[in-house]
């Protein structure tokens, strides 16, 4: 590279230090939450700064994982994430592929899709439709009304357009119909892209909180984020965990329970994060290419 002057060297060092500080502010909360969640009662009560557990205690985790309510809500969220992501991928990919071919009404449909990005009917009319279609208080209410993200649909359309047309033409000459082309030619070529879209949809389902509050009345159907809110934000860990406290002689301190719950609910995100990272830059850039 080029020689830098003394002043620029200083700026570079400052730049590095500031960025490091930013990174620390992003990581510090996790470190703190992690260490408190594994700390003992006396350490939590007696010290203000806990950056590493003095003695490792797993009471908070066994308390949470012994709660039926917590396990049930984790199950609900896993179910919504798996089924929801599958529905997302099927609906989005079939529609996106059809839109890359010059299907009847293509321009109109594309316009209508784009329009929903700029204008939506709002919460109340959507709520009424969800109710009228019989989804209220069913887990499908968290899946069907968000079956397609218009943004993802547009990005996926751009992606499918990038697949060479010759492949489609060759398949046509071999006598394949459009559905066969889609399932046997296009989808196998799009596995990495589908994985990326799937990860994004899955993270969305895992993190979704409000639709659970809006559409589900029955607490036994609540997803993990709703329970997590009760544990941490409403500050009622024992009530949210179904009060199986009687079984334990001494309850773990509420702070440790709250932090352990946050970590447990975030763990799946942290696990898929390396995979997400591999894909997202590509995905976002695809979207930035205007079409």
């Amino acid at each position: 590279m080029f020689k830098s002057s003394g002043g620029e060297r200083v700026m570079e060092i400052i730049n590095n230090i500031v960025l490091l500080l930013i990174a620390v502010t992003m990581l510090f909360p996790f470190l703190y939450i992690f260490s408190v969640s594994f700390s003992s009662v006396s350490d939590v009560l007696n010290s203000d700064f806990l950056l590493w557990p003095k003695e490792w205690v797993t009471d908070a985790y066994s308390y949470i994982l012994g709660s039926d309510q917590f396990i049930r809500s984790l199950g609900v969220t896993v179910y919504i994430t798996v089924v929801g992501t599958f529905v997302n991928l099927v609906f989005t990919s079939t529609m996106a592929y059809s839109l890359t071919r010059n299907i009847i009404g293509q321009r109109l449909i594309l316009f209508l899709v784009l329009f929903t990005i700029l204008f939506s009917a709002g919460m109340i009319p959507t709520y009424i439709i969800v109710k009228e279609t019989g989804l209220l208080n069913s887990l499908w209410a968290l899946i069907i009304p968000v079956a397609i993200s218009p943004f993802n649909l547009i990005i996926m359309t751009q992606f499918f357009k990038g697949i060479p047309e010759e492949l489609t033409e060759a398949a046509i000459i071999d006598g394949a119909n459009d559905i066969q082309i889609f399932t046997k030619v296009i989808l196998p070529l799009s596995k990495p892209a589908l994985a990326a879209f799937g990860l994004f949809y899955a993270v969305g389902h895992w993190n979704s909180y409000f639709s659970g509050v809006l559409y589900l009345n029955d607490p036994s159907k609540w997803p993990i984020q709703v329970i997590l809110r009760q544990i941490v934000i409403v500050n009622e860990p024992n009530a949210a965990l179904g009060g199986h406290a009687a079984m334990l002689e001494a309850l773990p301190p509420p702070e440790t329970v709250q932090m352990a719950a946050i970590l447990l609910a975030t763990l799946p995100i942290l696990i898929v994060y390396p995979f997400l990272q591999k894909h997202f830059a590509k995905g976002v850039m695809l979207g930035s290419v205007k079409g």
Binding site: M95, S98, L99, I109, V113, S120, A121, P125, V130
Partner: peptide, 27 residues
Amino acid sequence: RDRYLLLLIFPGVLYFLIYRYIPMAGI
């Protein structure tokens, strides 16, 4: 000519119709 493509696009279009556009009429 488009019959197979129409079959493919049908679920998506139905989704947009029911959950994005009927609510607009609900306005």
